[in-house]
Every structure is written in C-alpha cells, then in structure tokens.
Write a protein that binds this DNA or RNA. Structure first.
Lengths: 337, 337
DNA sequence: CAGCTAATGTACAGCGCTAGAAAGATATTT
DNA sequence: AAATATCTTTCTAGCGCTGTACATTAGCTG
C-alpha cells in the first residue's frame, strides 16, 4: 500500500500531472468536466499531496517556529495557544521549540532557522545577548519577543515594562500602601525585564514621595512559585514589614500569596499583591490575583505582522513595536473604594 | 545571498557532492585530509543541509505531531513539555496541533498525517469516536492517549481510570468522609474518562458500604475552573451536604477550592478535596491540592515506544498500555493521622 | 473561412539531498 | 609482477511536486 502520488492520480484520470495539480490548487482554468473527473480520481485513490515535496518545489514551508523558554509556564502556554491560533488563521503551522533558558539551545534555534525547516522564527530569548543574536541573524525572518535583547537590525515586540510597573505601583499606592515590596530580583537574571520593572516601581514610589527601602527589594533564586514563596517567607522571618508587593511574574505572586496565607497575613487586608502576566492562574487563587495584563492578542498579531513582512522580503532596520497593557484588577489588590 | 547548497560546498572543496554528504554524515571511509578540507569549506560557507530536501530524499521527516485539545490546559502543557523533551532525546521534533476538542480539527489531524509532514502522531482524542478513528487510521503510525476511543488496530496508552478513582475515593473514606461528591459530569462529554472515573468512585463507596446518593454527583457545564466553582456553589446553595469531593480534573478542583473558600468552608476540615492530573497548579493553592497523579514520564515513554515501533514497521493489532498512577497527597485531603 | 485571441492542457526541468552502482586508487597476496 | 582485495570518491537516478514554456483546441471577428 504505497503512498498515492500525483502521478498515480494523473494516470487514473488520464491527464497530466500538472492538470491534477491545478485541480488540487483550484486553479481557475480547468474545464468543469475534467475537474470533476480528476476530483473523482483523487477521491477514489484518497490522494494527499506530499507536503515535503511541495515545500522543496516551492521553497516555502508554511511553518514558523515559536521558541520559548518553557512550554508549561502559564504565560508561555497561553502565548503558544494564541500563536497557534493566529498561525492557523494566517495559514501557517507552528512548531514549538523549548529553549529551557539554555544559551546553547537558544543559539540552536537561530542556527536551525537556516535549515529550511521554517519560514520564520518568533523567539523569546532569555539568555542570549543582543550581539550574540545579531551575529546569528543572517537576514532571514526573525521576530524577537520580550526585553532580553534587541539587536538594531531585528524586529521586536514587547510591552512597556517601565510604564506597566509604574501602573502597578501606583495602583498599590492609591489604595494606601506605603511599604511596597518588589519580588523579585534573581542573581542569574540577565534579562532586561526585571530592571525595567524595577525602574517603573522606583519611579512610582518616587513620584509619590515614598522613600525607597532596599530591604523591600526581595531576591529569589529562580523563576518559580516555590522560590517566590521562600523569598517572601524569609522576608517575613527577617521581620521586614510591608503592605504591598509588586511581583514581576504571576508565579512569584502565587508563591507570595501562599507565603502570606501560611504566615497568617490577610490579602489584601494586611498586604496587597499584584502579579504580572495575567495568566489564568490568577483567576482561581484565593483571593484572586490582580495582575499586569499584556495585551496578548495584540502582541501575537504584531509579531506575526512583522514576521510576515520579513518573510515577504523586508530587509530594513529592526522595528520596535510596543503593545498595550492594562491592570487586571481582582481581589488581591482591589480598586480603592 | 542565496542559500548555500551541498554543491556549492563540493565545488569550493573540489570534491563531489557525495563526498561532502559523507562528511556531513560522518561516514567512516573518508580520508582524513579530505574530510578536513571539506569541513573547512562547510565552515567557510556556513553550510546547513536543507532539511526539506533531505526529507524528500529519505522519506523520513524526523517530526512527530502531538495532537491535544488545548495547549494551555495545565495537564496538556505539562504533557507537551515531557513529550518535547523525550522527542529531543530520541531525535525527533514535535509539532503541536491544537484540536480545541473540535471534531473537525480532530479529523484533520488524522488526515494530515497522511501528508508526509510527520513520521507519526500521538493523539489525545476527545470528540472522535472509535469507529471514526478506525476509519481514518490508514495503517500509518499513530498512538492514542486517553480513554475517549480505542480502535482495535490502534495503539493506546492510558492510566487505569477506574482504579485511580477508586484510590481517590478510598483515600477520602479512610480519612473519615462519608458524604463524598463527584465533580463532575458534563452533558456534552462523550469521553469515556468520566464514566470510568465515576465507576471507580461508585466502587469505592460500595465496598465501604456507603450509600450512593445521586445528589452528590455534580454536573458542570464545561471543563473549566469557573464551571467547577459554579457547580459546587450551586450545590451548596441547594443545601447539599458533603464532606469530600473527588474531582475528575484539577481545574474543577481549583474551582471547588475557591467555591468552598468563598462560602466559608474550611478545607480539609469541613470538606476534603481530591483533584486529578496532579498539575503544578495544585502545589500552590491554599490549601495545596491532593491529586491523582498519572505517571507522566512513563506515559510519554510508553507512547514513544509504541510509536517508534509503528514507525519501524510494526503493523499488528493495537497494543494497550496501562501506565501507573499514584495519589499526590497534600493538604486538601491529607493522610489520616 | 482564414486569422487571431483566449482558454486549456502537456512536457519537463528543476528544488537540494541521498544512496547505491561504478570507477579509480592503493594496498595486499601469490 | 600480475591478480585480487580493500578503500575512497564520483556518478547519477530518483524523492513528489511546482511552474514555466510550449502545444492544442475552442471561440470569435470580419
């Protein structure tokens, strides 16, 4: 039972391969009677075009790669879902590459891109630096996500992290918080995100005339809820007093919520908490989580727009697109009454 | 700056294409001096083999498709991660197809498989029925996950749902629960999972001599935390009394936890809760969630084993593999003291 | 009905790589 | 030294599909 090929259909229908191909592609100038005959042959044999062969012939793969640190991080899994749906809408398939924040795997993503497997790559780097990416960006289609790196020649989509952190901080200040913590700084973190979010946080305190207390900038060991939990618990154990927390990641916020709960603090009564990314997690915690909400669909659409322009041949300087954000206000840091 | 091809390297190195190919594939019988010269040419030009062309020539794609209902469901995103890692280990790439539990999209997965894009498919059906799958299973490599359907000729990996539900129910019974609810039955659900889990639940009650009260089988509208929350809240509003809940899904459990919290019940004091799938969600709820834990890595390994045998040419009858499970015991339904 | 345009259909050369056959070179044996 | 065996390398026919160039037929016009 070998695969049915175009030529098999052609023989059965008594026409040339090209005519069958024309029918498959709904090419307009095919006589109705012939089209019907060919279609019947296709149906009878159950013919499916071989995509690999088509790709080789056309030079287009119809696939794009989405390279993210972790598939099962809620933010990235939600992002993946949006990407997959947008891709379907635009006639692409997505192949997801997990980099695990490993510099070598990240590099491999860019190198593989050259292998003709995909038409373009949407890449959220964590560990690779700007120059590193620039060196490997051989002019083929690439769009970067996040804040880690932004080579001059490469397109790039992100939210305004400073302003989003500012919004979060203002929100806490408006509800009366005065000792607001930031969770968290990570030693090994080379991404720009944290710095920018920290900047917005500082700016918020500054404009409200609240003194910045270094003790309130918590550190964590890694980007997990567990690390967030530990960090907050330790701060409490050290006797640090605070009435609000801006978390740079929903997972940190989940950990913080749990730490506060376990140490008998009420949220938002004693401490108000703001998370980041507005993952679905936040909707089902108790209390539900207020969180910075990047406009994910905008982000995805922008990334695809840029990528498709690159695929279509744009070779110019890198475009930087800032997509909107909002604050999804829930119980952990409610609106001021 | 066109793509570098094998022949470009061959010309630069002054050898034949096959020799370059031999170097690329580390074929042993290449004279060291030549190998070096060819390698130098490869490096100089930055040659990358075109995978599409290689595929067409070899007939193998090195890719497998993972078809799941939703990428961002925690269970499936965790599964995806394991799959991606196992695939890498075995030299495959994974392309994730999201079916959204849509029968047409599910069907498309099986039809596409014929298109030579992937070497095999690991498919977790939700809406397609056994016969439907059997009809489309043209003998190419396919492994099914879950309980929805199991055609005779198709390989299949699952956990023993009856026994897992039995374990969960016994656990609650052992800690003294006597009015144990099941969350939940969904009208539109045609998967076998719920029935099997319900069966295990009944069996557990039966062997403990506890009467089965139909009022305790909760229904929900869809598989979301929101629906779980609503279902439990409504049961409480109706005045249904219960001291334990077996949830057929962690998301239901998250919703249940929130419903109990919002209505002032303590967990596990007033009501003990068991979830299903042991997603990472359960580790960060308050209280943390006891959950049925399928051995995901075993499941993934088994699925790949079967799939690789199919790819290698096995054409026999469908194998059914049952992988182990355990109960991840946490605060929401602790061990009996 | 010749003379032209438009509509249909066919032939075939690639796309870039693989792999088996064949050829050429070198080493070993008698 | 001839004959045989063993390496190395080259040659080349596909893999299945697309798209260009060309051939054929049909449809009109004057």
């Amino acid at each position: 039972m070998a695969r049915i090929r175009l030529i098999d259909v052609a023989e059965l229908a008594g026409v040339s391969m090209k005519t069958v191909s024309n029918v498959v592609h709904s090419y307009p100038h095919v006589a109705p009677a012939l089209r019907e005959k060919v279609q019947a042959a296709i149906d009878q044999l159950g013919y499916r075009p071989n995509l690999t062969a088509r790709r080789l012939a056309t030079g287009k793969t119809g696939m794009i790669a989405l390279a993210i640190p972790e598939i099962d991080h809620p933010y990235f899994s939600e992002l993946s879902r949006h990407m997959a749906e947008e891709a379907t809408r635009r006639g692409y398939r997505v192949i997801i590459e997990q980099t695990l924040s490993d510099p070598d795997l990240e590099r491999a993503v860019l190198i593989d891109r050259e292998a003709g497997l995909v038409d373009g790559v949407i890449f959220h780097p964590v560990r690779m630096e700007t120059l590193d990416i620039a060196k490997l960006d051989a002019g083929t289609s690439l769009v970067l996500l996040g804040e880690a790196a932004r080579p001059v020649m490469t397109d790039h989509v992100m939210i305004d992290n400073v302003s989003a952190a500012l919004d979060a901080t203002r929100h806490l200040l408006a509800s009366g918080c005065r000792r607001i913590a930031f969770l968290g700084v990570i030693a090994a973190d080379i991404t720009g995100s944290t710095n920018q979010r920290l900047l917005g946080y500082q700016q918020g305190l500054l404009e409200a005339g609240v003194r910045l207390d270094p003790e309130l900038v918590f550190t964590a060991l890694e980007f997990t809820a567990e690390a967030g939990l530990r960090s907050v618990t330790e701060a409490i154990d050290r006797g640090v007093r605070f009435d609000g927390v801006v978390c740079r990641d929903d997972r940190f916020a989940i950990g913080a919520l749990k730490a506060l709960h376990d140490t008998g603090r009420s949220v938002p009564g004693d401490v108000a908490v703001v998370g980041w990314d507005n993952t679905f997690l936040g909707a089902y915690t108790s209390p539900t989580l207020t969180s910075v909400a990047p406009k994910k669909t905008e982000l995805v659409a922008a990334a695809f727009d840029l990528l498709e322009e690159r695929i279509a041949g744009y070779r110019g300087v890198g475009r930087h697109v800032i997509v909107g954000h909002s604050l999804a206000v829930r119980e952990s840091a409610p609106h001021t009454p």
